[in-house]
Nucleic acid binder design. Structure first.
Lengths: 345, 345
DNA sequence: TTGTACGCGTTATCAC
DNA sequence: GTGATAACGCGTACAA
């Protein structure tokens, strides 16, 4: 049976001060850091009283009094996605390391939700808002979002963007173009020529960069004219494209490169349904190097992104004032694995 | 170049009221629901002013004035883990559906961190605290945590536990015992006899239940004496156990069951390193049915858990007062896939 | 229906 | 070094 005494009032600073026989400001100075000094005897009594009463500062009240909170808001597309999950995890870790709380909201890839969420989150008075993912190739349509973020920034908040190069705020991203380009060069170097590139039907800048980078990389190596498709941005979308290829097209291919690991695996599933063996009959490569895929066989060739570095940089920017929008690009580099063995020519 | 006008003050209800030519309480009644009615003309002017100024309610201030916030705090072990990631995602979705914000903190499986986090989160004045994962088999050691949670509860907060049956609060879990038991019966039914069970070296009640359930299931089917090991609770731990088996032990086995999919995959990797083919030489089964593993080959036999139902129930409990601690058990059921084909006896 | 006055828990400014 | 007192933005009795 639970105690029936009805909702008690939480223990406040006042309670602690009274119990310790000091004034409330003094208790405040002891418990929540202040420049001012407090006599040792008082200090001990306050700490003792706080411990005995189980005092915890009321963060909303602190935030209001101080005018700034220790919370950062993270807006992400889809946390169940292993890629965003990993990114969110890294951000949580970094934030915690500097004593910040994190409030997470998901857009589920809907641009309008994004705007609403930012507006709502602004109400939480977070110290910073981090926007991860999404990022349209169509900047003008983002104007309302930019306005909203600007307003937030004007009141002292920090805005940090991850992996979206379209908005005029501090941005951390990785080198989508260069990563894909180097991957293409390496693969061309071990014999791959006839490639199918799977982009995305969504207007995501980062995905477009990956497609462009890959095509450039092939061109660097003297391979021209990769086929490019833009299926639905998902495992299923990639699989469906493969399932829709004619037998001739399929037979002709040596490699499928998809702009995410998730899609690469969809393609892989589709290729298997079509009766092809991976990697004996055809190679597959992705992008992201998602940890949770380490058990896929054959091990997937992909482009690795240092998410920990991305998160660290993002949290750093989120806590560091910065008069001008800055862009930091974290390198991405290819990792060739069993899904793309060297081809004998 | 960014505007240099220095941090402006955010737009407050007062600003809106002034702009609309009404009193602050009237603006409050219009913008943030109140029982009281406001004349239509006033209503419109307030709404218009709010829109024009870009007003967003200051949530911490609201929380303080109302004495309750619209935030729930989620404490989880490890969000990068696909299992917890999926659970967190479902909770975010459910919370959003009822208009609640979510603040996430990770314990990284350290019991002391858990206590600290709860204390800290309490300061955020969330409407509820949801604890997911962990859950020691050693309840006495949790007393400080229980005390802290009780204190929180006494001030009107709700406490909900997911998948840990050791504490006297509202609990949502899934039937670890029964799920594993039925899996064992099904596998025994298609010929599996000589099994290695991989538990966990951590004192987690849910994992212990899975081990017990599996052994019971085997017993139900007349199979006695499964070997049980308790490796480190991770992919690597499971793999290492397999790598450490003698050739004789290995040859004798027909199945490895691990208490999580993650560990099952570790075991699978280890088995392959030992030169065994899966499933031709030996079967492998896990628990959790993690979505992101759909591309593992062979498809992993496992126990499915309806995380969406778990999340829904948890958020429901988090928002519904309840005089007595209640337990709700969500079913878990085996899903037999290619990693455990029928054995010819 | 509307406005005045006060309180929520905390920090900051200022005398002492 | 310490303690009154005034903010912070909002909700809500209460009076008008």
């Amino acid at each position: 049976m639970r105690s029936e005494s009805g909702p008690k009032r939480p223990v406040t600073l006042d309670d602690v001060a009274r119990a310790a026989g000091v004034s409330q400001p003094t208790a405040s100075r002891v418990l929540n850091g202040s420049a001012r000094k407090v006599a040792e005897s008082y200090r001990e009594r306050v700490l003792e009283a706080a411990r005995a009463l189980g005092y915890t500062p009321n963060l909303p009240a602190q935030a209001m009094a101080r005018g700034t909170s220790r919370t950062i808001a993270l807006v992400t597309s889809l946390i169940s996605d292993p890629y965003f999950g990993a990114l969110a995890a890294e951000i949580l870790k970094q934030a915690e390391a500097v004593g910040l709380h994190v409030s997470i909201a998901v857009t589920e890839r809907r641009a309008d939700r994004e705007l609403d969420l930012v507006r709502e989150l602004r109400g939480q008075q977070p110290r910073a808002i981090i926007l991860a993912g999404s990022g349209s190739v169509d900047p003008p349509s983002e104007q309302p979002l930019v306005d909203e973020l600007r307003r937030y920034e004007e009141t002292g908040g920090r805005v940090v963007l991850i992996s979206r190069s379209d908005l005029p705020f501090d941005t951390v991203d990785f080198d989508n173009h260069e990563g894909a380009r180097q991957l293409a060069r390496e693969l061309a170097g071990i014999g791959y020529r006839r490639c199918l590139v799977l982009g995305s039907d969504t207007p995501l800048l980062s995905m477009r960069r990956r497609v462009e980078g890959f095509v450039h990389g092939l061109a660097d190596a003297g391979v021209a004219g990769a086929r490019v498709r833009h299926p639905q941005f998902s495992w299923v979308g990639a699989r469906d494209v493969v399932l829709g290829l004619s037998n001739d097209e399929l037979r002709d291919l040596q490699l499928v490169f998809a702009v995410t690991d998730d899609m690469a695996l969809g393609a892989l599933a589709g290729l298997r349904e079509r009766g092809l063996r991976i990697p004996e009959d055809i190679g597959v490569a992705g992008f992201d190097d998602i940890t949770t895929l380490r058990d896929v066989v054959p091990a997937l060739t992909t482009v690795h992104v240092a998410l920990d570095a991305v998160a660290e940089e993002a949290v750093y920017r989120a806590t560091t004032p910065d008069p001008e929008p800055t862009r930091r690009t974290v390198p991405a580099y290819p990792v060739v694995r069993a899904s793309t063995p060297r081809l004998l020519s």
